[in-house]
Structure formats: structure tokens, C-alpha cells
């Protein structure tokens, strides 16, 4: 396959940035999208040019590092991570546009790499439980109903890639925050901090200058882990409950 790539190039956070077009020849349909970028980068390096910087780590769809917007959709045309997207999803001769996540809370570091530490700060604000240290407790010391465990696990699969923010017309981080609130709020271990958690995490979310959620649903449509949209309603329920009892303070 021969592909024309339009890639966002930006030398540093201070640089203005621009789209640059590259031709990539002899692409195998079985290559992953990142491998195709690897091939291009080797060529660029050999030609003495600066290779395209992009985030990647596990390359098996579980770390959440490799987020880029491909042809206007976060992680591209398949609902998965960019590393699990293969060139067979494109046609020979296609022009593909690759851009970084776009949000004020995710400033571009270089080319396609953005700084997602705003997510870490939301987790620090409330995405934890208090557990006594020491030897591991017995596995069944705290019984958890199967349905609750499943729901917690579904929400816990969030890998923090940031596709929800990238896809959201408001650049809101609500699905990410809601996934964490739902995950920890669905199990007994998360109950003591439940009321405070939702308020603290949301305050941090707003402080990081993510946009407000208007229930559009683009986030859940692109989420590679299929975090359900109703986690946002769960977050709203927790918040309204927390405000009603005044227990958040």
C-alpha cells in the first residue's frame, strides 16, 4: 500500500506547529498504525530529518499511551487503541491526517505527544481508597456482589488514554472522571471516601480547565475500553447525593 500522511509537526510546546505531508510506500496491510509510523521514522532518520514523536508503550492495547486523532476520530476508524489499529482498515492511496489530542488540559509536548498529567492530578484528588498496610487480606474477607464487581471492573478498565477528552466537542474529561468514580464507588472498599471523592475529583477536573459535559456521547463512542456513558449519570447521582447530605465537606 502507498499512503499519504498529513502529520502535525511541532518542535516544542512553544512552537506554533504545522501539518507536514509525507509519502509512505510499501506499507503492509498487516502493519499496525504505529509500525507504519516506525517505518516512516526510520526513513526520516536515514534522511537526516527529525523523526515524528509519538507516545507508545505496551503496543498491546492496555497502557493507553498511544493516543492520536486519525482522520478526525480519536484512535482512528476502529474502536480500539492506535497500536491495535491496522493498516488494513485503510485503502491503498489514502490520505490520512494524524493530529495530537486537542485540549488546553493536554498541552502538546512535541509533535503528537501531549502531556496528560492533568489526569494524574484528578486521580490524586480522589481516585484512591484508604487501606491499612500489612499482609494481604483474605480474598473473601469482604464479599462483593457479582453485579457490583462486574460494574466496578467494567469502569476500572479505563486506561486513561484521553480519547474521551479528544473526542468531546467541549473537551470535557467527564467520562474519565466518571469511570474512576464508578469503579471505586461500586465496591465496599470505596465507600468511606465516596461522597468526598466525587466532589474533589470534579473540582480538580474543573481546575485543570477541562470543559463541561453536555451529554453528547462522543466520548463513549470512541472509548477503546467501552466505558459506558451511564457512568456519567452515576457520577451525577453521587454528586447530587453528596451535595444533598452536605457530607462532602
Amino acid at each position: 500500500m502507498n499512503i499519504t500522511l498529513r502529520v502535525w509537526r511541532q518542535r516544542s510546546s512553544g512552537d506554533e506547529g504545522r501539518m507536514v505531508t509525507y509519502q509512505v510506500e510499501d506499507v503492509s496491510p498487516d502493519m499496525s498504525f504505529l509500525e507504519m509510523l516506525d517505518v516512516l521514522n526510520e526513513k526520516l532518520t536515514l534522511a537526516g530529518e527529525e523523526p515524528i514523536a509519538f507516545d507508545h508503550d505496551c503496543r498491546e492495547g492496555i497502557c493507553g499511551a498511544c493516543g492520536v486523532v486519525i482522520d478526525g476520530v480519536a484512535h482512528g476508524p476502529e474502536t480500539t487503541t492506535t497500536c491495535q489499529l491496522h493498516m488494513r482498515s485503510f485503502d491503498d492511496g489514502d490520505t490520512i491526517t494524524v493530529e495530537p489530542w486537542r485540549a488546553k488540559a493536554f498541552p502538546v509536548v512535541k509533535d503528537l505527544v501531549v502531556d496528560r498529567s492533568s489526569f494524574d492530578r484528578i486521580i490524586q484528588a480522589g481516585g484512591y481508597i484508604s487501606a491499612p498496610t500489612g499482609s494481604a487480606p483474605d480474598a473473601h474477607a469482604t464479599p462483593v456482589p457479582k453485579a457490583d464487581a462486574d460494574r466496578a471492573f467494567d469502569a476500572a478498565t479505563c486506561i486513561g488514554c484521553g480519547a474521551c477528552v479528544a473526542a468531546c466537542p467541549n473537551a470535557s474529561g467527564m467520562l474519565f472522571t466518571a469511570a474512576k468514580v464508578t469503579h471505586l464507588g461500586s465496591v465496599p472498599q470505596g465507600q468511606p471516601e465516596r461522597d468526598a471523592r466525587v466532589v474533589q475529583m470534579l473540582n480538580q477536573h474543573d481546575e485543570e480547565e477541562f470543559g463541561g459535559c453536555t451529554n453528547i456521547g462522543e466520548c463513549a463512542a470512541v472509548c477503546p475500553k467501552g466505558i459506558p456513558l451511564d457512568t456519567i449519570s452515576q457520577l451525577n447521582r453521587d454528586l447530587l447525593g453528596s451535595l444533598a447530605t452536605g457530607s462532602a465537606e
Partner: peptide, 20 residues
């Protein structure tokens, strides 16, 4: 206004497609 601040001008996507 919050949405406009969260993705300011100059940080918009060149190509944008909906998944819905």
C-alpha cells in the same frame, strides 16, 4: 465559554469526524 477555553482557537482539529 468553558468549552471555548478548554479547546481554544489555534488548538482546533484540522479534520474532525463524529463517531455518532
Amino acid at each position: 465559554r468553558r468549552a471555548a477555553r478548554a479547546r481554544p482557537a489555534g488548538q482546533r482539529y484540522a479534520v474532525r469526524r463524529s463517531a455518532q
